[in-house]
């Protein structure tokens, strides 16, 4: 029985990414026509950096979407705000301390994710509600620990994420790219990634093949929390300071970016590269609107409408497919 050699990369996977790629290109061109400064190295570098932060959040959200069972993580923003505020409270003068602090914030996020996962699998609370509740609890915790005070004095190492390594590429951007690449490789090339996709797509079949569905589902939330924890730490390095609830918008934006990137909210299908592209689309959009000097209010409205439209069309076409 002869059949042609097929490569590992499915044409289907790429086809899903096409719309995002096209939109990114369109936005770039549109921005360029508006102002030459738009495609300047500095501006693009800044855009990439901002997008990288969203990319972390989107990657976390993607993992949870992939795990199925109506998975969603509405606590990402809360976790990010938490580590953005609490992270700098730890000593991070030396590289060793910095590494330790990084591990700690990841662990904090992972614990939040663990609680989410347990609530969802053990107590059978729908993910939407559970993560929503957790976000509230996390805010309470953050408030309690920081007593409402913002983070101000930051170590140079942390601020180093802003450093330019290559033209257009800052440290933070590199982190983002590495994260996406690692996540995508894990998804496609490791057993753990494959198991996640199987559990998300058809948990019954997964169970009958001996996969431990509950464990994998909880692990997804733990990973999401951990990544969000790390992202919060990067956020405070990028911004230079942190205040309560500063990462609020990341939660829903990460949902939007993941959906734009082609991830299915039903589970099992999606890509991290797509999520990165989706993040890029959103940040480019914001950037262009800012450049057009549209008053902030109208900007919000347009963003909201466009976002709504994109979400609607994406989920609608998926429902039609079902």
């Amino acid at each position: 029985m002869e059949w042609p050699l097929k490569r590992t990369v499915n044409t289907k996977n790429i086809r899903v990414l096409l719309p995002s790629i096209v939109v990114v290109a369109v936005l770039l061109i549109f921005g360029a026509t508006l102002s030459g400064r738009f495609i300047s190295v500095r501006n693009l570098g800044s855009i990439l950096m901002t997008a990288s932060l969203l990319v972390f959040a989107t990657t976390a959200q993607n993992i949870v979407f992939l795990s199925g069972n109506n998975g969603i993580d509405l606590s990402i923003g809360a976790v990010m705000s938490m580590t953005a505020l609490v992270g700098p409270m730890m000593p991070i003068g030396t590289p060793v301390e910095f590494a330790f602090a990084t591990l700690t914030v990841i662990a904090m996020g992972a614990v939040c994710g663990l609680l989410n996962g347990l609530g969802i699998r053990v107590l059978s609370i729908p993910p939407l509600i559970m993560t929503l509740i957790m976000s509230n609890v996390i805010y309470g915790f953050t408030l309690f620990v920081t007593k409402g005070r913002p983070a101000m004095e930051l170590s140079k190492i942390l601020l180093g994420v802003n450093k330019t390594v290559f033209p257009m590429i800052r440290v933070l951007t590199i982190c983002g790219v590495v994260a996406v690449a690692a996540a995508e490789i894990i998804l496609r090339k490791t057993r753990a990634g494959r198991k996640l996709a199987i559990v998300g797509d058809n948990p019954n079949a997964a169970g009958l093949c001996g996969l431990r569905v509950s464990l994998i589902s909880v692990a997804a939330y733990v990973c999401s929390g951990g990544i969000a924890g790390f992202a919060g730490f990067m956020l405070v390095g990028y911004a230079g300071s942190a205040i309560m609830r500063m990462a609020d918008s990341y939660t829903l934006l990460s949902v939007a970016a993941a959906i734009i990137g082609g991830t299915s909210v039903a589970g099992g299908r999606g890509s991290f590269v797509g999520g990165a592209l989706g993040s890029l689309v959103l940040i480019l959009l914001t950037s262009i609107l800012q450049m057009l000097n549209i008053p902030q209010g109208a900007r919000f409205v347009i963003q909201g409408v466009l976002l709504a439209v994109i979400l609607l069309t994406n989920t609608r076409s998926e429902k039609l497919r079902q």
Partner: peptide
């Protein structure tokens, strides 16, 4: 459909399932 296969996945991925 419901228990034996993951319909979105390829032949190769389904055979690897177990």
């Amino acid at each position: 459909h419901a228990l034996g296969l993951v319909m979105d996945m390829t032949i190769k991925e389904n055979i690897s399932l177990a």
